[in-house]
Simulated scan of single mutants.
Amino acid sequence: MNQPIGVFDSGYGGLTVLREIVRTLPQYDYVYLGDNARTPYGTRSFDTVYQYTLECVRHLFDRGCRLVILACNTASAKALRNIQQLDLPRLAPDRRVLGVIRPTTEVIGTYSQTGEVGILATRGTVTSESYVVEIEKFFPELRVFQEACPMWVPLVENGEYNSPGADYFVKQHIDRVMAHSSRIDTLLLACTHYPLLLEKIRQFVPPGMTVLSQGHIVADSLVNYLQRHPELEAQCSRGGQRTFLTTDSTADFDRQATVFYGESVQSAHLAL
Rank of each mutant, 00 (worst) to 15 (best):
N82V: 00
N82S: 07
N82K: 10
I83S: 03
Q84E: 01
Q85F: 01
L86E: 12
L86K: 13
L86M: 08
L86N: 13
L86Y: 02
D87S: 09
L88M: 06
P89C: 09
P89M: 06
R90C: 04
R90V: 15
L91D: 11
L91Y: 11
A92E: 05
A92M: 05
P93I: 01
R95P: 04
R96I: 00
V97S: 01
L98G: 02
L98V: 10
G99A: 12
G99Q: 08
G99R: 06
G99N: 12
I101Y: 00
R102P: 00
R102N: 04
R102S: 05
T104F: 06
T104N: 10
T104H: 06
T105E: 01
T105N: 04
T105R: 04
E106M: 12
V107F: 07
I108L: 13
I108E: 02
I108C: 08
G109N: 10
T110Q: 12
Y111N: 11
Y111A: 14
S112R: 11
S112N: 07
Q113A: 12
Q113H: 08
Q113M: 04
Q113W: 00
G115T: 08
G115W: 04
E116D: 09
E116F: 07
V117D: 02
G118L: 10
I119C: 06
L120P: 02
L120W: 01
T122M: 08
T122H: 04
T122Y: 03
T122L: 05
T122S: 07
G124N: 03
G124P: 07
G124C: 05
G124L: 05
G124M: 05
T125W: 00
V126H: 02
T127G: 07
T127D: 04
E129P: 00
Y131H: 06
V132W: 01
V132G: 00
V132N: 03
V133M: 04
E134G: 01
E134M: 07
E134I: 03
I135Q: 02
I135S: 03
I135W: 02
I135K: 02
E136Q: 14
E136H: 13
E136L: 06
E136V: 00
K137H: 14
K137Y: 09
F138S: 09
F138Q: 04
F138W: 13
F139I: 10
F139A: 08
P140S: 02
E141K: 13
E141F: 08
L142E: 05
L142V: 11
L142D: 03
R143N: 14
V144Y: 03
V144E: 04
F145W: 08
Q146H: 01
Q146G: 00
Q146S: 07
Q146N: 08
E147Q: 15
E147A: 12
A148H: 00
A148L: 01
A148P: 02
C149L: 13
P150D: 04
P150L: 09
P150E: 05
P150G: 11
P150T: 09
P150I: 10
M151S: 15
M151K: 15
M151A: 15
W152S: 09
V153P: 04
P154M: 12
V156D: 07
E157V: 09
N158E: 15
N158D: 14
N158Y: 11
G159T: 09
E160K: 15
E160Q: 15
Y161F: 15
Y161E: 10
Y161N: 11
Y161Q: 14
Y161P: 06
Y161A: 12
N162D: 13
S163L: 11
P164W: 13
G165H: 14
A166G: 13
D167C: 12
D167R: 14
